[in-house]
Design a protein around this nucleic acid. Sequence first.
DNA 1: AATGAATGAGCATTCATTCAT
DNA 2: TATGAATGAATGCTCATTCAT
Lengths: 212, 212, 212, 212
Amino acid sequence: MAAARPRRHDPERRQRIVDAALRVVGARGIAGLSHRTVAAEADVPLGSTTYHFASLDELLVAALRQANEGFGRQLRERAELADLGGPSTDLAPVLARLMGEWIGGERTGVELEYELYLAALRRPALRPVAAEWTEAVTAALARHTDLVTARALVALMDGICLQVLLTDTEYDEEYARAMLTRLLAARPDAPGDPTSGVRRVSSDSPGPSTDT
Amino acid sequence: MAAARPRRHDPERRQRIVDAALRVVGARGIAGLSHRTVAAEADVPLGSTTYHFASLDELLVAALRQANEGFGRQLRERAELADLGGPSTDLAPVLARLMGEWIGGERTGVELEYELYLAALRRPALRPVAAEWTEAVTAALARHTDLVTARALVALMDGICLQVLLTDTEYDEEYARAMLTRLLAARPDAPGDPTSGVRRVSSDSPGPSTDT
Amino acid sequence: MAAARPRRHDPERRQRIVDAALRVVGARGIAGLSHRTVAAEADVPLGSTTYHFASLDELLVAALRQANEGFGRQLRERAELADLGGPSTDLAPVLARLMGEWIGGERTGVELEYELYLAALRRPALRPVAAEWTEAVTAALARHTDLVTARALVALMDGICLQVLLTDTEYDEEYARAMLTRLLAARPDAPGDPTSGVRRVSSDSPGPSTDT
Amino acid sequence: MAAARPRRHDPERRQRIVDAALRVVGARGIAGLSHRTVAAEADVPLGSTTYHFASLDELLVAALRQANEGFGRQLRERAELADLGGPSTDLAPVLARLMGEWIGGERTGVELEYELYLAALRRPALRPVAAEWTEAVTAALARHTDLVTARALVALMDGICLQVLLTDTEYDEEYARAMLTRLLAARPDAPGDPTSGVRRVSSDSPGPSTDT
DNA sequence: AATGAATGAGCATTCATTCAT
DNA sequence: TATGAATGAATGCTCATTCAT
């Protein structure tokens, strides 16, 4: 039993620790992440975790960065695969579907990614990574619409997912699609755009004029 | 049960503990909340906290419920004060301004409310309270538009706030106003609406039912 | 073995911990003092030490205070026993002898008391206790001479002891007696004082004000 | 042995480590000194510190030796500069002033030198160095008085400094001068000296021999 | 000769919980 | 009913040391 751990040179040690950390957070939440739990999960000595990651924040940063690959990569791939040649509004159903698949998947994975992401609220160390993720996703979407709209799409998607996750309600893909569509359809440069006043409106002028 | 008859000798004891809990979470995060820290902050005996709140989750529920009064009440009051008689699109600048004031306020208070809200992700006990809050805000907004749109407005606002808080970026009121406007302007009953597929709903059901 | 520790109510617990702390410091130095070592030495659960003394500093304060009784009480008793009716210079041999006995005793005890005392250099929490000790000893000596001289006697004794302890040299009682005598004999108000020139020697100001 | 041939590729490496050790002890005390902290402070690899100084004691010896240069050199220079041709009592104000300047300087530096010096209490390895320092200072002072008196002057100065440092009281230069004066004025060769029993010694032996 | 990697022991401290009033 | 005392487990983290280059 004790004899089974003579491995000194283990170049993948660091990676295994990050993987273990993700499993631990997935199963028990960030609150359940400790040097000890991750060491046990990774089957490495306790000292090994503190050696590779001087603080838990450091480990969380690595974990979040790795988790970002999940949804982010999916989204980018999907958005690209869609190969949208037509009007950008076509993006909405793709995104709504993607959200549905993601949220409908294993609850554990979804919670894990969101929990890591939201942890940036209280841990400044995670904010750059959270920003990276947002930027990456936004940039991916911006290929099919403008940057401002892309950012709003991401915000809306975040908000919709949170509503589902925080209030124990069902994800409604049709509703999501419709709302994403509104953000896309009403772009200033969209033909027949009802919110073309956006640019005109500054500080205190009346709300963006909508045509009737 | 223990919590069911809290005000016996010191009727304010329970309330003082909740207040202290909010201060503790505000200052040190949920991770910093313990029977001990809250007892010290409330200046009550340690045993008193375990007596009134058998578990920390119970205390968190009470705290979240109380915190909800903050932004929620502000939003409802503001929305009502606006006394919008005209087109519902006028709602956007009001909300954008309100968000700006809220987010521009004390970071501590903002973090506190969001942290409690987001904690529902991992604590099922908090979800009903989180749902209450969402429902209340949505209902308030629904007085000026339809329920589906209201729900999306809340989602978008959540998403925008999170982007600001998680990525350490500045809040852009103009951007927020414009995006909220898009959601409002493109309602199904707005003429020329490209998303006319979504009908106005008035039901109270969690997920807005949509037809195709 | 494990069954041998069912004692919940132990009113002397606190005192036993302090005693154990003194033994630990005596044997292994302050550097060897930890909640664990003291718990083991006192044969109490680890949590018991942190419960009674929230920090190690707190424990050190209690230990130093208790250690002060040692030499301090001896000195006061001895000084009183001497029942000096004659000129205060008689104090010198008494003190020199006392130092000799103290320093010639168990090295462990001597080191312990000095180490705790000197620890005040870096631990502000100990300074009030160190000051208490100095004041007490000074006051005891002041009964046989003036306050200023008493303070100097203490300082000289400290310095002589340190020389012995830090440089591994023998204590020379005769030398100590002679030097203490000089401090006593040369008091401004001592008859035939050869240092009545104190004032004369100093460049500008009169000697330190001494109470009489 | 490892330390015996330190300057091979990086001849300043060893010196840099000692300098860093002094900074570390100054800032965090001896308790804060470790191979890691000093390596970080010196900006050298961890292994380098263990290579050049096999044990922390070894490093402390080097640090103490270097620190000794501080006050010791100052004192010697000052005492020499004074170029006292007159009666030795003139030494007192010079020493009192020097103490005042030293103690009134940066607390960090003062604490550092004293802490290293006092550490000899528990670390036999440091005692020879502490003895060296005492001998050097004593010898310097002995040029202006006899050896026995010089030793007592050093002891009194140590005691006075410690009182100030350990009890958070103000240094009283006038008081120090007066007490040093007493030690000097009452020398055996001073006329009417009540302590004529102590002969002047010139030997180099550790303890001043006295007859009765 | 010199150093990065690695590890098990130990640290102060916090904690939920239990128990005896 | 309410609460101080008590405790064993767990936490993040630092460390001297060992080992394999």
